[in-house]
Design a protein around this nucleic acid. Structure first.
Lengths: 143, 143
DNA sequence: GAAAAAACATGATATTAATCATATTAAGGA
DNA sequence: TCCTTAATATGATTAATATCATGTTTTTTC
């Protein structure tokens, strides 16, 4: 469903949402240590997210990655789309090219409703929503 | 969600469900041609399914793969489990080792209900169910 | 009981995804 | 303006998955 990469990306963005802002940026080195994921790999992912304006960054001394209030309004699905591409989530579960409502594959009707539901939820959930839950200890992000 | 392998496996089993029985077996060569998937790859998958008694087979002349009425009662999930392993479907969507109801990851509560629903549906859907739909042209399996 | 036909078992290769490494560019401070 | 710092761009390596190939065993038929 999600690639390893987008799992990592989501973790990192959530960490940034909780611990950074315009005045408190964080270097990839520190991020990777805190969330316990490979530095070079995380770096690549964050760079991609930054390029697509999902998160923010500045170079040089005192630079680093951070998320602005505006960034926090990005949705979970937008992260997934940047990292995994738009297709991955929507493609037919049997991998058929032309599977649709009119010409459904054998499991389309069965699982499509649940999957659509999931996608909608991810599309409507913002980074901010998830960050709030973490702050309130309603959810957990063990490293 | 599903590996390529289990997609292929499901396609092949459905094809067998529609076109074979104890008296009409089919060689992997013919199966692969009909469903337009690589022969050697399909062979390996069918052998695995046969070993686990999800489908049936006999060797030698007039041999081949086939599904019995009993085989048709196997569920979609059982195919997936044989090919992909039990964990793949159930593992935390963020890949966290200890994510559960008591200690949910940031997206657990969000997507867990939909996913559980999906799993339940797959666990309760038999090959026979899907084959019936195909026979009635309610669903399609283009090659 | 020998020959042929088919699945079975095993392992090799190729492709894709995950991970790592490094030279380049921009920002900040002296 | 120059040096240091940290992201950026790009590409290399490694690991996992998908794909292919082949010798072995079982079954049928003559």
């Amino acid at each position: 469903m999600l690639s390893n990469s987008s799992k990592y990306a989501l973790k990192a963005v959530l960490y940034l949402a909780l611990h950074t802002d315009e005045n408190n940026k964080m270097m990839v080195k520190d991020i990777s240590e805190r969330i316990n994921l490979p530095k070079a790999y995380i770096a690549k992912l964050l760079q991609e997210l930054s390029k697509r304006k999902i998160i923010s960054s500045t170079r040089g001394p005192k630079g680093g990655f951070y998320v602005t209030p505006s960034n926090k309004n990005e949705t979970v699905m937008q992260i997934i789309e940047v990292i995994d591409g738009k297709k991955r989530m929507e493609t037919c579960m049997l991998g058929l090219e032309d599977c649709n409502e009119q010409k459904p594959c054998p499991i389309h009707r069965l699982i499509s409703p649940s999957r659509s539901k999931m996608i909608t939820l991810l599309e409507n959930k913002t980074i901010n929503d998830l960050a709030k839950d973490l702050e309130l200890n309603k959810t957990f992000l063990p490293v």
